[in-house]
Nucleic acid binder design. Structure first.
Length: 826
RNA sequence: GCCGGGGUGGCGAAACUGGCAGACGCGCCAGACUCAAAAUCUGGUUUCCGCAAGGAAGUAGGGGUUCGAUUCCCCUCCCCGGCACCA
């Protein structure tokens, strides 16, 4: 008998699939279905997280093809990014070469896993054929006012003279040279994602059901809509008021001072010529030199300094001192806060520390707050006091009453603020897509004309890790002519954030590799949106939010018809070993190559799907891998040992089978029904595999008793074996293709999911538990559909039950047909 | 601190709408095969009491709703992930 030889089988079927283009679109004629896994960063080698992610996606794609869908299942490379540049500095290898070699190696690794991708649509984001389109989108956005430039801060290493990413800052120091990192202000490009804040929030409702609830919640909080009011305070000695944002306009009468962010644009003017000026400047310098993380760390000391200036509370004319405080953020709200120490804990602490005035304006029911004895701020409900005409109002009503009052006076209005900020997309890096802009001394900022796209990255550059962006030192790149006046001009040397590339790649697959347009309308309309997206939970906010934003922008630009890119989302857990996430530094990585070498790709796939349901973390176990391998061997042996008998079996006559064969067939059809739901609806591959294992065990036991397979028994087994190949095909495609071939069946990549024969799956008799006072005391068997009265009678006659019921008073009998009986006695 | 997700045998897990807790796999124990081992096959395996039949306890801990709770509600503890003073 032939033995299971994964290496030989796998390479043969991988060649066959490639040769026949088995996974191109249009192979199946049914309705469209788009299955997508998050594309990898080409770091060098695939890791177990990839194996898991892509095994899940491949199982879904292959199952949908069996169901008759025309499936789009593409793969590509998120190929721009920091590690390529670091490798260039460290190993003197060009980022392009490094990246392309990594892609070639990893593509081969994925091919050896047998994933069913349509490689004809492969994209790599570092190629001009890809990034030219996002340069075009950027120009579109610029024209619509969605892309703009503004000053913002970056991490700057003064020794390396370069901008650092957040991950390159370790405890406030540069990761390369340990110099203290400074905050430097640069002009940078931004995309107006905040214009879409309301829609991004509202459309989360459409995704409910298809997306995990926790991801929706996280996005909800990230967008962070706050409803409140803007209030204008006149400033003594100035004709320009200061505006604050507050969610508590009801406490306005209790505002006793004001706090500004150190970066607030009015600070220099407020302190000009005052004795406090030097102290304020020193404070501002100190706070600004801290990195954001240190400044906002938990338990961080709340600090501030008085500016010497005063503002006027618009509702009661109170003079309120203006302070600068380290906890006020310049980029949230208006960068200025009205402080109400009695009803905001942070303001309470600040006022206590600096001896500032406290006034109670909300009194809770049945209590009387006194500022001098309060230990903490009171932020609950109550009635207004010391608030002029608003005294006695419930504080919730007062919010709107005061906001309206301010509106009438022209000193404020209802206002909504989002936590979401505009997306800064400028990076002072080489290995990214150039931003297609030109600076001319005469004409200012001029977009690159569309016919000149793509703006290509020059390949001749040096990587030293010092002196800023290598692109800025590339003479051939910087110098250009102004498209307007044809005078001398310079190119923008910043490149796009790599999140830009990953925000639209799923749409590009619909038309890749077309070089005439980013998308062909009919194609993108046919395939978008992605029906099932699969990836790590770590992308719950940024990548998924940016992709949703881009899709809406591309819709408004007329490129696509959809407003949401991903209909269903599956977030998979991490791969853990020895209680920690697999990582090189912990030394607990398992190399997929070695695994495939030893057991084959099918075993790696079975294990990664069997060990846990997709959304949970997966605990790696070498023993578990061997278990998966043994299961494939058992299945192989079961089928191959009976090949001759089942291949010569007569036609199946389902209506006239003896009881023992009806039992076998019932197990087969019941398993098929369960696997169909587990794979197709629940994505719980672990229980689907368990069900097939059970069936294999059942069939083995039956065959041991049965001996020779003859007549209708062989026919029943022929059906059983063909079902097993179909059920396992999404999970272990190579071995099942081989078995189907040995059984004389058509290749599974062309095949169809079998249908359950409801009659065959129907139970002839069922056994249900009988409880007495909730404790299991017996079991009774009956035909399905037996009446409640009859079930009760059978339960009462059961010997085990009788001993517990005799001599007691029966209070109640609960009968749930097909489930259980509970007899309540006293 | 806030938000989110969890806690079930020695281990990974299952129990989908409140209805037999522990399917399936791993490990372990015993047996078969073998000179022996590996591989494979067969049987057993939640804990406690009992030779057994059987009984009792049991899903982090405490309480509640219910004929019945791993599942629903309240409180407490622990673990993981995300965010970080959001006015």
């Amino acid at each position: 008998m032939r033995e299971y030889n994964p290496k030989e089988i796998e390479s043969r079927w991988q060649s066959e699939w490639k040769e026949k283009n088995s996974f191109g679109t249009g192979v199946k004629q049914g309705p469209k279905h788009y299955v997508l896994e998050m594309f990898p960063y080409p770091s060098g080698r695939i890791h177990m997280g990839h194996v898991r992610n892509y095994s899940i996606g491949d199982a879904i794609a292959r199952f949908r093809r069996l169901q008759g869908f025309d499936v789009l299942h593409p793969m590509g490379w998120d190929a721009f990014g920091l590690p390529a540049e670091n490798a260039a500095i460290k190993n003197k290898v060009h980022p392009a070469k490094w990246t392309r070699e990594n892609i070639a190696y990893m593509r081969e690794q994925l091919r050896k896993m047998g994933f069913s991708y349509d490689w004809a649509r492969e994209v790599a984001t570092c190629e001009p054929e890809y990034y030219r389109w996002e340069q075009q989108f950027f120009l579109d956005m610029y024209e619509k006012g969605l892309a703009y430039k503004k000053q913002s801060f970056v991490n700057w290493c003064p020794t390396c003279e370069t901008v650092l990413a957040n991950e390159q800052v370790e405890a406030g120091l540069c990761w390369r040279c340990d110099s203290p990192v400074q905050q430097r202000e640069l002009e940078q490009w931004f995309l107006r994602i905040t214009d879409y804040a309301d829609e991004l929030l509202a459309d989360l409702e459409q995704l409910r059901g298809g997306w995990p609830e926790r991801v929706l919640t996280m996005q909800h909080h990230w967008i962070g809509k706050s409803v409140g009011a803007e209030v204008q305070f006149e400033v003594e000695g100035s004709d320009k008021p200061l505006t604050v944002f507050t969610t508590r306009p009801d406490t306005l009468f209790g505002a006793t001072f004001m706090s500004l962010a150190p970066e607030h644009s009015r600070v220099p003017e407020l302190i000009a010529g005052r004795p406090e000026a030097a102290d304020v400047l020193a404070f501002v310098d100190r706070v600004r030199s801290q990195d954001r993380i240190a400044r906002t760390a938990e338990g961080g000391e709340k600090e501030g300094v008085f500016t010497g200036a005063y503002a006027i509370n618009p509702v009661n004319g109170r003079r309120v001192p203006i302070w600068v405080a380290n906890f006020v953020l310049a980029d949230y709200g208006t960068g200025a806060v009205m402080a109400v120490p009695t009803h905001d804990q942070r303001d309470f602490e600040f006022a206590t520390k600096y001896g500032l005035e406290k006034v109670v304006v909300i009194q809770p029911e049945g209590e009387s707050l006194d500022p001098s004895s309060m230990k903490a701020a009171y932020d609950g409900p109550g009635k207004l006091v010391a608030s002029g005409d608003f005294d006695g109002l419930n504080n919730e009503e007062a919010k709107w009453a005061i906001a309206e009052h301010l509106d009438k006076q022209g000193r404020g209005r209802k206002s909504i603020t989002f936590r979401l900020r505009d997306w800064g997309i400028s990076r002072q890096r080489y290995w990214g897509s150039p931003i297609p802009m030109i600076y001319c001394d005469e004409c200012g900022t001029v977009p690159v004309p569309r016919e000149q796209l793509p703006v290509r990255l020059p390949e001749q550059v040096e990587f030293t890790g010092e002196g800023g962006n290598p692109l800025a030192r590339s003479e051939e790149f910087i110098h250009t002519t102004c498209p307007k006046c044809e005078g001398k001009a310079r190119r923008e040397t910043d490149t796009f954030d790599t999140f830009v590339e990953s925000s639209w790649y799923f749409l590009r697959y619909c038309s890749a590799p077309n070089d005439q347009a980013a998308f062909v309308k009919e194609e993108v309309d046919r395939w978008a949106p992605v029906d099932q997206y699969i990836g790590g939970i770590e992308h719950a906010v940024m990548h998924l939010l940016y992709s949703r934003f881009f899709t809406k922008v591309l819709r408004d630009l007329g490129y696509v018809s959809i407003g949401e890119p991903f209909k269903r989302l599956l977030t998979q857990g991490m791969v853990i070993k020895d209680g920690a996430k697999m990582s090189k530094s912990k030394g607990n990585v398992v190399d997929p190559d070695a695994l495939v070498q030893k057991y084959g790709a099918d075993t790696a796939r079975v294990f990664s799907l069997f060990a846990a349901p997709p959304e949970k973390d997966l605990d790696w176990s070498d023993r578990g891998v061997e278990g998966a391998y043994r299961f494939l061997n058992r299945t192989w042996n079961l089928i191959v040992s009976r090949l001759d008998a089942v291949k010569s079996a007569p036609a199946l006559n389902a209506a006239e089978l003896p009881a023992d064969l009806r039992d076998v067939r019932r197990a087969v059809h019941k398993t098929l029904g369960k696997v169909e739901v587990d794979i197709g609806e629940r994505y719980h591959f672990n229980t689907a595999i368990a069900a097939v294992m059970e069936l294999v065990n059942t069939l083995s036991d039956d065959l041991n008793k049965r001996g020779e397979l003859q007549g209708q028994a062989a026919s029943v087994y022929r059906e059983a074996f063909s079902f097993i190949t179909a059920m396992l095909y999404p999970i272990a495609p190579h071995v099942t293709e081989e078995l189907a071939d040995l059984l004389g069946l058509e290749p599974l990549w062309k095949g169809a999911w079998p249908s359950v024969d409801a009659e065959a799956a129907r139970d002839e008799s069922i056994e249900i538990p009988v409880q007495v006072n909730g404790k299991l005391r017996g079991r009774v068997s009956m035909a399905p559909g037996t009446t409640k009265d009859e079930i009760e009678r059978l339960a009462m006659e059961d010997e085990g039950v009788k001993t517990w019921v005799e001599g007691k008073q029966i209070v109640k009998v609960v009968v749930v047909p097909n489930r259980m009986v509970n007899i309540v006695v006293k």
